[in-house]
């Protein structure tokens, strides 16, 4: 500090060094009116605001909600806890098959590539906020009769008719879980790359979701592929359509492309750092680190 400090700087510096306000250094403002004390004696103190007789005078105040013998109001109706643990529940904002077909018809989504949450977020028409417990797409059956596209789609929640509608057209569907940290990354990948961090591992589903994502009927990403192909056949029998053969499809490689359970993006492994400015990918060399990311 070569120059003479300004007055404002001095004050700030001093305020930083001064002790905090506490009970030991608090005092009333000068000139405050003095409050009158409780009167004593023959006429000075009558009831002191507590009235005559009853619970007021005896200071035996009733518990909150007690209505002196009536059935209390809070016990009249049964408890219906609609919002119980709402802060822990997972929300899946819906995306209908009609919306998906419209996106495909207007070339907002490329069918030649696998469609995942990142591809749908990049269109800008799907409202998705991971910070208010949104956990991904719920593909709903609206417009199911007009759905004609052949897609490889990965969603977070869906129903049986939707799976049937997609597989009837020769497409494939997977339900996959993403932890909130991965969801933020999928929503805006560019923002994540700009932070210069390594792509993290995707976490496994929580306890109450693991049954859904390991079930072949839901086409879960943790299910046995052989069981999934069996369930594809079963669903075709149930809904009465002939299942198009995936092996003979010209887009076989695209339709069977899947992410690793630890992977967030297609083709990009956890542990890599993406430098989108210089268009290079940094990969760790350390074997221990690579093992950690592939566990």
């Amino acid at each position: 500090m070569g120059l003479k400090p300004k007055m404002g700087d001095l004050t700030v510096q001093m305020l930083r060094a001064l002790p905090r306000i506490g009970l030991y250094n608090l005092k009333p403002i000068l000139g405050m009116p003095k409050l009158s004390k409780r009167g004593r004696g023959q006429h000075g103190g009558d009831k002191h605001g507590c009235g005559n007789k009853g619970s007021g005078q005896r200071q035996n105040i009733m518990r909150p909600g007690y209505e002196t013998g009536n059935q209390p109001f809070y016990l009249l109706f049964g408890n219906e806890p609609y919002y119980y643990r709402h802060h822990l529940r997972r929300q899946y904002p819906p995306l209908s098959l009609l919306q998906l077909q419209t996106l495909i018809d207007t070339d907002r989504i490329d069918v030649d590539r696998p469609i995942d949450l990142a591809a749908i977020c990049a269109t800008g028409v799907y409202r998705f906020f991971p910070n208010i417990k949104h956990f991904g797409i719920n593909l709903t059956d609206e417009g199911i009769d007009n759905f004609k596209a052949k897609v490889n789609i990965e969603v977070q929640w869906t129903s049986e008719p939707v799976i049937a509608a997609i597989e009837r057209n020769g497409g494939t569907i997977t339900t996959a879980y993403y932890d909130p940290h991965s969801l933020f990354i999928l929503k805006d990948p560019l923002k994540f790359f700009e932070r210069g961090e390594a792509i993290p591992r995707r976490m496994i589903p929580p306890q109450d979701a693991i049954m859904f994502y390991t079930d072949a009927k839901n086409r879960g990403y943790l299910a046995d592929p052989e069981k999934i192909s069996w369930e594809r056949f079963v669903l075709a029998q149930k809904y009465g359509y002939t299942l198009p053969k995936l092996e003979e499809d010209p887009d076989y490689e695209m339709l069977t492309e899947r992410k690793d359970p630890r992977q967030i993006f297609y083709g990009l492994e956890p542990g890599w750092v993406i430098n989108h400015h210089e268009k290079v990918i940094l990969k760790p060399k350390d074997n221990e680190l690579r093992e950690y990311y592939q566990q």
């Binding site: 990049a122 993006f265 750092v273 060399k285």
Partner: peptide, 22 residues
């Protein structure tokens, strides 16, 4: 710090480019 290699593979970069908003 841990060692890393810098790669510039167009095949891998395709997977990055598809993530960007048009």
């Amino acid at each position: 710090y841990t060692d890393y290699e810098i790669t510039q593979n167009p095949e891998e970069w395709k997977y990055v480019e598809r993530l960007f908003v048009k």
